[in-house]
């Protein structure tokens, strides 16, 4: 058992790198996912993950599989889509979900077109599904930097962000931080998606952001508790997913997200708050 659990990480550097990368993504992206979930913007994360594709693709066209070029391209595309959809919402009758959906679908189509016309299927697979088992030092530094920036920004903006979620009208009445908070948060979403797509790809990265956050909802009720539970689930899913991928020769990204999905299934069945079990036995704790 020990060998099955530890040996892959002890023996192979690429597994240790993959684990460190996944932990960095878990620590940075999952708290952002918790706030997305609490703001009822879970699908916004999915939309933004698709929106970064043309930027990454243009970066790839310019410089090949370059970490820097693809990161900057993805960031610019993600922020452009966020700002454009926000602008359209403010100046037209279209709601934010509809304008975001339109822009991200256009963006996705453009990205796939660029990659598939100028690159190979392997390149397309790299962008869509990532290469968590091939993370180099630069990629790890990028992921750890993004996690650090995210935690720092969330710590600084914690109170305005909570208020922006719970009572945005009050925040707008007492402070001018509302817009700053909203756009900083969107920038954090894009930043984490762009960082994460190097490891998990544009399609899978949103999974590590949202699925653990959704699972955490059944284990905690405070914001701090939700973030702690979500990060713990994400790290556990990363370890389990990488091990399953190693032992059974499966792709790592989907294995990690499926492990998080398993945690979600167990949480919604047996979690102490709001789960099926808690609804069937709502007063179980009183007997303890």
């Amino acid at each position: 058992m020990w060998e099955a659990l530890v040996q892959p990480f002890a023996e192979f550097g690429f597994m240790r790198r993959a684990l460190l990368g996944c932990i960095a993504i878990s620590v940075g992206a999952t708290p952002v996912g918790v706030f997305l979930l609490l703001r009822r913007m879970s699908l916004t994360g999915d939309a933004m993950a698709h929106a970064i594709l043309p930027g990454a693709a243009v970066g790839y066209l310019v410089a090949g599989l370059s970490l820097g070029a693809m990161t900057i391209g993805g960031l610019l595309a993600g922020i452009a889509v966020a700002l454009l959809s926000g602008f359209v919402t403010r100046v037209t009758a279209l709601r934010e979900d509809a304008s975001l959906a339109a822009f991200y679908l256009i963006s996705l189509a453009l990205g796939v077109l660029i990659v598939s016309t100028r690159g190979s299927n392997v390149d397309l697979m790299h962008v869509l599904f990532g290469t968590v088992l091939a993370l180099n030092n630069s990629a790890l530094i990028l992921l750890c930097s993004i996690a650090s920036i995210t935690l720092l920004a969330l710590a600084l903006l914690f109170r305005p962000l909570v208020l922006e979620c719970a009572d945005p009208q009050f925040l707008r009445a007492v402070s001018r931080l509302s817009a700053v908070t909203h756009f900083t948060f969107l920038a954090l979403v894009v930043l984490n998606l762009v960082g994460g797509f190097h490891a998990l790809g544009t399609l899978m990265v949103v999974g590590i952001m949202i699925v653990p956050a959704a699972a955490a909802r059944f284990w905690a009720i405070s914001i701090g508790g939700l973030i702690l539970a979500a990060v713990t689930i994400a790290v556990a899913a990363s370890v389990c997913g990488l091990l399953v991928s190693y032992h059974f020769g499966l792709p790592s990204g989907p294995a990690i997200i499926l492990a998080a999905g398993l945690a979600y299934g167990l949480s919604l069945t047996f979690g102490p708050t709001g789960s099926f079990a808690a609804r069937v036995h709502p007063y179980r704790h009183a007997d303890a």
Partner: peptide, 12 residues
Amino acid sequence: PQQSDIDQSFPI
């Protein structure tokens, strides 16, 4: 504001 503007499901 009117109560409906506050998200009571938010965990604070």
